[in-house]
Amino acid sequence: MTEPAARGYEGSAELGRTVERARQGDEDAITELYRHFNPPLLRFLKGRLPSAAEDVAAEVWVSVAKGLTTFQGDDRDFRAWLFATARRRSIDHLRRMGRRPRLKQMESAEELASLSVEPSQAGEQLEVDEAVRELVAGLSQEQAEVLLLRVVAGLSSEEVAHIVGKSEGTVRVIQHRAIKRLAEKFQKGM
């Protein structure tokens, strides 16, 4: 079952045509895809790898650029491919760094606040980054990943299930617990 696509990321004929043009080597279309997909990609990676998001995003785009001509599918498929690549790259990065994805929960907003933030970033961007960090704060790695893929990447639970290698039902349970935890956090803070 395919759910309605997430906000602003509905599959569109226009975006589908852009993917097709990019696949055929149209550089304007590639630029358009980058502008459309890089913001959610960066946000997803910032939620996973705050200090290496931009480097890993660059790796993801190089990988996508290499495989673009052989890619088959529409804009939804492209989105799923992009974020599946991003997830793999982030896991690779964590392996390279010699540590496994953290399963422990992030204890507090203070811990999150300690993560590096470029001083040159605009206030607007800081706000977005902060929201992404707050979104995954207190969540398990698994919950954070699913939530980011649903909220930031704009993927359906079916698409997320495919990417993380779990059943759709399991993904629904994970996302439910994640939202509940966030709600509990806000309730405690009230």
């Binding site: 946000r43 660059a58 961007q125």
Partner: peptide
């Protein structure tokens, strides 16, 4: 978290 893209997020297409 889904705020409109900022300038810094959309630059760098030339590398791709």
């Amino acid at each position: 978290a889904n705020a409109p893209a900022s300038y810094s997020e959309t630059t760098g297409a030339h590398q791709v």
